[in-house]
Amino acid sequence: MSTQAAAPRKTRSLHRFANPGRFLRLADATLPWLWMACALALAVGLVGAFTAPVDYQQGASVRIMYVHVPAAWLAMFTYTTIAVASAVALVWRHPLADLAARAASPVGASFTLLCLVTGSLWGKPMWGTWWVWDARLTSVLVLFFLYLGHMAIANAFDDAGRGRRAAAILALVGFVNVPIIKFSVDWWNTLHQTASVSRIGAPAIHSSMLWPLLTMALGFTLFFAAILLVRMKNELLGQRLRNLRAASLQRRGEPGAAATGQPAHAES
């Protein structure tokens, strides 16, 4: 009985944020604080990154870690966000979840590319090569292609609804790659080192290097949250603009005016 009652309540609480007007007001109120916190975390993290001691083996090349590792975490975190948003959109047909998935995809692709390039820039002096086809590097490259596929497929259909559903299914199927990335260094013999921070027991990294790394990761995550809100606002306003244009054309009696393919949301 209690489980039957819990499901509609959960759906109701999810749909409280489906109202675009409420979402826009919440985003406008949150964004200045997010940007300030992001700037502060990145500033403190950068000072820490350039004042932390150099590694006794890697020398100053260890400073690449402070941007490479947060980019890698964000690449996986963004894909996880897209997968969760896609599941919510498919199961509960939450309109903002679809927008979140579409808005996050280019951000995730950018940070995955950043992770690959900075990893390459570290690999050349440390491993003696820009690239190896080891499990970690290859699975991150696959993640980058998944992002590109997600972006392409969402816009590949004349019917925008079908495009969104196909992209959501791709996101869910592709999510299998995220644990593969995480555990690739344990499951296979890779050139890439195993986890240093997120492992059972104490992190294998000295606190003087750990705090700048975690602060930079926080800054990157806050940047993601802020840019996602801005891009979701863009998606909402773009949708509203298309609907207004279609309504305007319809009033003039022009053909094809109703073919926006966008769900009509209540604006407030």
Partner: peptide, 28 residues
């Protein structure tokens, strides 16, 4: 060490990070 033997790898990493973040921000 900021301008040492690894500067050619460290600075492009930070430059690219800045480019990605500022680029995403500017486009959005």
């Amino acid at each position: 060490e900021l301008f040492g033997e690894y500067a050619a790898y460290v600075w492009p990493s930070y430059g690219l990070t800045l480019l990605v973040m500022v680029g995403l921000l500017a486009v959005s």
